[in-house]
Computed example of a mutant assay.
Amino acid sequence: MTGSPGPRLTVDVVNPGMRLRLKGRLDARSAPAARSGLHAAVDGGQGELVIEMNQLEIWDGAGLGVLVGTARRVRQGERQLVLTGVRARELRLLRVARVTWSSSVRAAALAG
Rank of each mutant, 00 (worst) to 15 (best):
R29P: 00
L94V: 07
S104I: 15
M18I: 08
A62N: 10
R98W: 01
R19G: 01
A107H: 08
L94I: 09
Q76H: 15
L22V: 03
R106K: 13
R73S: 05
V50I: 15
L9F: 04
P7I: 10
Q46K: 11
R35D: 00
E57W: 01
A111Y: 14
A108R: 15
R8K: 09
D43Q: 14
A97S: 14
R98L: 08
G63L: 07
S30E: 06
V68K: 11
V13L: 05
A34H: 09
A40I: 09
R89L: 05
H39C: 04
R29C: 03
L91I: 04
A28I: 11
L91H: 13
E90D: 10
G45K: 11
T2M: 09
N54R: 14
G63Q: 05
Q55E: 15
A97M: 12
R92I: 00
L49R: 06
R87F: 06
L93T: 08
G85I: 00
A33D: 13
Q55M: 02
R19Y: 02
P16C: 06
T10G: 05
E52T: 01
R25Q: 06
R73A: 07
E90A: 10
V82H: 10
T2N: 08
R87I: 07
L9A: 01
A34V: 12
G69S: 13
R73D: 01
R19S: 05
R25L: 03
R95F: 07
R79M: 00
A41V: 07
G44A: 12
L38A: 07
V50D: 02
R98Q: 14
R21W: 07
Q76M: 13
E78S: 15
V13M: 03
P32R: 15
G24V: 10
E90Q: 14
V42L: 10
R8P: 05
A109E: 15
G24M: 06
I58F: 08
R92Y: 03
L94S: 02
P16E: 04
P16W: 06
I58W: 04
R98D: 10
A28Y: 12
G45N: 06
L94A: 00
R72L: 09
T84R: 14
R89G: 00
A62E: 11
R35L: 03
T84D: 02
V96G: 07
R75T: 10
R79Y: 04
G77M: 10
L83T: 12
V96I: 15
G44P: 07
L22W: 05
S36P: 02
R29K: 12
G17D: 06
V11F: 01
G65S: 13
G65Y: 07
T10Q: 06
M53E: 00
